[in-house]
Design a binder for these strands. Sequence first.
DNA 1: ATAGGGTGTGGAACCAGTTCCAAGGGTTAT
DNA 2: ATAACCCTTGGAACTGGTTCCACACCCTAT
Lengths: 346, 346
Amino acid sequence: MEAVPRKTTIREVAQAASVGIGTISRVLNSSSQVSRETRARVLEAIRRLGFRPNAQARRILKRRTEMVCFLLSNRDFLHPFHARILQGVESYATSLKQHVLFAALHYSPRTPPDRIDLPPVLQEHGLIDGLILAGTIYPNLLRRIESIRMPFVAFSNNVVGMGEEQQYDQVGFDDFNGTLQATRHLIGKGHRQIVFAGDISYPWLHHRFEGYRQGMREHKLKPALILARNAQSFVDFGQKSAGRILSRRPRPTAVVAGNDEIAYGLWRSLRQQAIKVPDDISVVGFDDREEALLMDPQLSTVRVHKEEIGETCMKMLLERLHHPHMAFSQRILPTEFVIRGTVCHL
Amino acid sequence: MEAVPRKTTIREVAQAASVGIGTISRVLNSSSQVSRETRARVLEAIRRLGFRPNAQARRILKRRTEMVCFLLSNRDFLHPFHARILQGVESYATSLKQHVLFAALHYSPRTPPDRIDLPPVLQEHGLIDGLILAGTIYPNLLRRIESIRMPFVAFSNNVVGMGEEQQYDQVGFDDFNGTLQATRHLIGKGHRQIVFAGDISYPWLHHRFEGYRQGMREHKLKPALILARNAQSFVDFGQKSAGRILSRRPRPTAVVAGNDEIAYGLWRSLRQQAIKVPDDISVVGFDDREEALLMDPQLSTVRVHKEEIGETCMKMLLERLHHPHMAFSQRILPTEFVIRGTVCHL
DNA sequence: ATAGGGTGTGGAACCAGTTCCAAGGGTTAT
DNA sequence: ATAACCCTTGGAACTGGTTCCACACCCTAT
C-alpha cells in the first residue's frame, strides 16, 4: 500500500501564523480566549495551507469519537421501515456533528451471549461511543452488548422474549393504541363483525392484537383471531387468511390486519375472488409502508413516524453518553390512524 | 459530560507481562519476531487485564482509518434500491474488517462546487479513507469531492450531465442491454407494436430508451415514446400514460416501462379500465423492485444485482486506496431479464 | 508606586499506540 | 579465540492533536 501524503499539521499552521500551537487549538475549538487579530491571522493561515485537523488525534485525548453505530440484526435486507429509522438517526446525528456507522449482524437467539460474533466495530475499542440496536433483538444479544459495556439504545418493538424487566434504554412506538384507534374507527363506522389477522407469535403483532381486543371489549364485541398456516411471508399470510375470513359466519364486515403487508396480501386475494374493498369488506393495516399507497383504493392504516423513532434513539443515546449513571428510560412514541379509502360506512 | 473511565494501555500490559512495550505491539500485529514463550506470556496478560487496543491511536501512525463513507445524495429517503446497495457495501466491507459510515447530503446542481456544504465526515480529515457516492450525482458534487482530494467511487447510473469524460472510478449496471433484452423478449413472443413509457430526461431512462430503440431497430420496427404530463411520481407517470397508450392506433400489444414504478402505475390504471395484463396488453419493467412481486400477475422485469453493485463499489474503492495513481476504471455490471407473468405469447 | 486581577499566549507534557535502532545473547564459521 | 551473524527484546522517538501551567501584559485599585 502506498503511503498517504502527509497532511498539514497544527505545528506548521502555528509557524505560518507566527503563533504557538496552543493558539491554533484554541481557535479550532472556538474557546473564546483568543484576540480578534490573532484569530484572524490563524484562520487566514488555515485557509492558505488548506489545513483540516486530524480527527483521530483529537479523539485520543477527548476519549470520545462522536461516532455511533446503527446495528441492524437478523434482517436479510435493509427494509424501508428500518431504512427510514436509519435516516432519522443520521439526520439528527449530522445536525449535532455526530457520525453514524452502519453495521449488520446475523445471530441465533440460541447462541450463548459470549459466543455471539460481533461485527468488527464492536471488537476494537475507541471506535464508537455507543450503539443503536435495530432489527430483531433477543435477550442473548442484549447480554452480549452489556458485557462489553457499550452504551446502547434499543428500538424496542422488535425485542423478543424479554419479560417486563427493563434494564436498558429503549424507544418504540405504540402498537397497542394504534390498533385500538383503528378498531374504534371501524366501530364508529358501524362495523360490528371485525376480525384481526396476524401471527401473534411476534410480540409486536401480539401487542397490536391486544389493542384490537381492547377496542372490541369497549363495545362488548367478540374478538376473533384469524391465522394462516405455513405462510411464507406476511403478504402470503394475508393471502391465505382471505379464505378463512370469508368462510366465517356471520361474515366479517371488517378486518384489522396485523401490518400493511398482511393487508396487501389480503386485498390482493380478495380482489381475485371479486370481493370489493371496501364495498364488500373493509380493511385496515398497520405501519403505513409504501404498500399502503400502492393499493387501490389506498389503505387506511396506522402511521408510525419512522424518522422520529430514529431521531429519538439518537437523542436518548446522547443523553446516556453524557450521563452514564442516569436511570434507564423508555419512550413510546404515539401512532396515528390515517383515513384513506379501505373503510366503508355501514 | 462525565469522564470515560481510562482503559488498559499497552504500557500496563507490558508491565504485567514484564516485557517492553514494543513486544506488546509486535504481538498485537503478529509480526513474527517474538519467541513462543514471550508471546504466550503477553497473550495471557492481555486476557487477564481485558485489554482491547485503542483503534484511534493506531490510526494516527498508520494513516488509515479502515473506514469508508457511503454518501447518499438528494434522496428524500433511503429507497430500497439504494438500501440494498448499502447492504452490499456493508457486507463486503465487514468481511475485510472495514467500517462503513452512512451520510446523506442534499444539494442543488446549481450550487458552485466550493459552496456545497459537505457533511461533517468530509470536513475533518483522518476520519474516512474514501467515499462511495450514491444517489443523484451532478458535476458540481464531483468537482467538490475532487477538491478535497478524497478518493471515491461513484455509482454511475444516476450521474447527470457529465458528458463522456470519465475522470473518476465508477460502477454501474447496464441500462441499455437490460431494455434491449426485454425488447427482444417481447419481439420473440410475437409482439410488433411495442411502445416505451418513461421520462427520458433522466439519463438512466434515456439509456433504457436507447436499448429499446436498438431492439426495435434490429427488427425494423418503429419505436414510440410515451410521455405523461405533470406526473407527480413514477407511479403517477405510469397511470397517466395508460390513456395515451390505449388511444394509439394501431393499439400497442406491449409496453416497455422505464422502471418498475411506471409499470406498476400503468398496471393499476389498466386494471381499473378492465384491461387485462397480459391478455390484452403485455408489460415489462426495469429494476426488479419489491413492486414487481406485489403485482398480479408478477411483473416480468430486468433484474439489477443491487448488492453486487455495492460490493463492487467497495472493492474498487479499496483498490484505489491501495494504488492511488492507478488509471480510473469503469465497471458496468450485467443486467438480466426475469420472466414472470406479464408477457403473453401472441 | 505597588499590588491585584483579568486576558492572551507559548509550549511542555500528555494520550496510546507504532517504528526503529541499539544491544544482549546464542550459535556457527574461521 | 575471535569474528560474523541471527534472533529477540527494550524503549526512545514519533504521530497530531489537547490541556494546562507559567508568564507577559495591560488596566484598575490602593
